[in-house]
């Protein structure tokens, strides 16, 4: 007979005080706990410290396009695997994973819409899809957004968020820089305005092609914008970078963007620029 009888009820950890992830968000800037509803209504801008959090491509469409005006194009376009690329994971598996995670087929959403009543071709990148990297589909959809603007003689607006070229498509991804820039050359010759909006982060091949080629470059506060990433630069020059290096404000100071604009004011800024510059816009009598 046992002298002791072990109590069978196992120890239970007291519930960690995690926030219900679908109800609250935490601001990365000031640490404020934010009710998600309120946060989303504010388009991911912290009402306390004005920190701009990353938001999805869909949110930018809601933010910029007049309600109900956005007609998406080529939503079903998907990446082929032209090189048969595999690193630790085959490229098609990475794509599948990204599709499941984002509910999108690729790292860019594009279509036509109206912005403050002005017809425009709009493309928005999604950083959540393989770091917003530019492969053939991103290049082609950006090119088609440009061609749509050319065909319908409307302005073009692109919201960029990207880690750069998509290595898994090798030289094809490099050539998307040339491809998108070639379409912008045509827009340039036809004097159709192109507004480029740079959000956090915009780096690599996207910065060194269409993101920097706006007639007007707007950047969100605090966004990291550059060609080489900060870590690569630090490794090269063997010293730490000063705070604020490659921030939107740094770029404005160095003459690379026209204006740093609060996300909540982007739409009116775009509207104002298009009314000023686009010959096709006629003020109402």
């Amino acid at each position: 007979m046992a002298w002791f009888k072990r109590q069978k009820t196992p120890l239970t950890a007291e519930g960690r005080r995690d926030l219900p992830r679908d109800v609250f968000d935490k601001c990365g800037g000031c640490g404020e706990i934010l009710y998600r509803e309120r946060f989303l209504r504010n388009f991911g801008v912290c009402p306390e410290c004005r920190n701009h959090l990353r938001i999805s491509a869909g949110r930018y469409v809601e933010l910029l396009a007049d309600p109900g005006s956005f007609e998406e194009a080529n939503a079903g376009m998907t990446s082929a695997d032209p090189l048969g690329f595999a690193d630790r994971k085959p490229y098609p598996d990475r794509l599948e994973e990204a599709r499941r995670k984002t509910g999108r087929n690729e790292a860019v959403v594009a279509g036509r819409c109206r912005i403050e009543g002005i017809p425009a071709s709009l493309a928005v990148m999604d950083f959540a899809f393989i770091g917003g990297s530019m492969g053939s589909v991103v290049g082609e959809k950006i090119a088609r957004a440009g061609r749509c603007a050319l065909k319908e003689e409307t302005p073009l607006v692109i919201v960029s968020a990207s880690g750069g070229a998509r290595m898994m498509e090798g030289a094809f991804s490099l050539m998307q820089m040339a491809k998108t820039s070639a379409v912008l050359a045509r827009l340039h010759e036809r004097a159709l305005p192109y507004v480029s909006i740079l959000t956090d982060p915009t780096t690599g091949g996207v910065t060194a092609s269409y993101a920097m080629l706006g007639d007007f470059n707007l950047a969100e506060p605090g966004a990291l914008i550059g060609f080489a990433g900060p870590r690569v630069i630090e490794e090269t020059i063997k010293q730490a970078l000063p705070p604020g290096f490659q921030s939107a404000e740094f770029l404005e100071e160095h003459g690379m963007v026209d204006s740093v604009v609060d996300r909540r004011e982007l739409k009116s800024a775009v509207g104002q620029l298009l009314r000023h510059s686009w010959a096709g816009w006629k003020p109402r009598a």
């Binding site: 910065t207 269409y210 060609f227 080489a228």
Partner: peptide
């Protein structure tokens, strides 16, 4: 490749490359 340095970023190497791509295309 492009030079990942401080001055190169400060003076806009992304813009310089991008402009070349567009202007060479036309």
């Amino acid at each position: 490749g492009a030079y990942p340095g401080f001055g190169a970023e400060e003076r806009g190497q992304a813009e310089a490359i991008a402009t070349n791509l567009r202007e060479m295309a036309r």
